[in-house]
Simulated scan of single mutants.
Amino acid sequence: MTQIQLTDTQAVVLSAACARDGGAVFPVTAKLKGGAVGNVCKSLLKLGLIEEVPATDINTVWRHDEARGPITLRATPLAQSMLGITEHDATTTPAENVTTSSPRRKGTKQEALIEMLRAPDGATIEEIMAATDWQSHTVRGAMAGALKKKLGLEVTSEKVEGRGRVYRLPGA
């Protein structure tokens, strides 16, 4: 099996699509310039992570096909499986084993941060610093940049008596 790694941009576009009802790729919320949206979508199509389907909304048209009419894009079951959203039957997928290079690599400090924030008790800045060997500004930057902006995760916080400010991800 060939292992394929996604860029941060591909992962952001795919994550946003998988979060929508029906897996719609459009509108793309990532800030991309020029033909970057087309290039990202073409690469995800080639990997089998998104597919072309008839468009029902004129604002989501990817391209026009003479035979099929307006076409849009949606995430495939393989994409949802790859992002850990659903289980997917390997017999119906391409032979590639697809992983993301940035948001979801295993054994990273970012993964440790996400696990700590998903724990029922959440985590304080000090606890995260001890687990990751990061400084406090790096922890705050990772939560604001990587988790909130890039991955679209909602980090919440509250003051807990005896612990201080505790940060959590929804579903924790």
Rank of each mutant, 00 (worst) to 15 (best):
P27K: 06
I50H: 03
A36C: 08
L78Q: 09
I50Q: 02
I114H: 01
K106P: 08
L113S: 08
Q80D: 10
T108R: 04
T91P: 00
A79T: 04
Q80K: 13
P103T: 12
T72A: 07
I114M: 10
G48D: 10
R68L: 13
N97L: 11
Q80I: 00
A112E: 11
T60E: 06
K109I: 04
K106C: 03
L113K: 03
A79W: 09
E66W: 04
P77S: 01
L49H: 08
D89E: 09
G84A: 07
D57F: 11
C41I: 04
P120C: 04
Q110D: 11
A95N: 12
L47N: 10
E111K: 05
I50A: 01
G34W: 11
G107V: 10
I114Q: 12
L49Q: 12
P94G: 14
P103K: 05
M116I: 05
R104N: 10
I50Y: 03
L47K: 13
L44Y: 05
V61F: 01
D89R: 08
L113M: 15
A112R: 05
A79H: 08
I50V: 14
F26C: 05
A55V: 08
V37G: 01
I71C: 05
V40T: 13
I71L: 12
P27S: 09
T76E: 07
L44N: 09
V37T: 12
M82E: 07
G69H: 03
E87M: 07
T93A: 15
K46D: 12
P27M: 07
I114F: 02
I50L: 00
S81D: 13
V28T: 13
N39S: 15
L49I: 07
A90D: 14
M82T: 15
K33T: 08
E111H: 04
K46Y: 02
E96A: 14
W62L: 01
F26D: 01
T29E: 14
R74L: 00
A30P: 11
S102I: 11
L32M: 11
G107Q: 06
R63D: 00
L113N: 10
T56S: 12
M82S: 10
D65S: 14
S101Q: 11
K106N: 05
K46C: 00
T99R: 15
T29Y: 05
S101E: 15
K42E: 14
E96R: 04
G69M: 06
I85Q: 07
V28G: 08
V53R: 14
G38L: 10
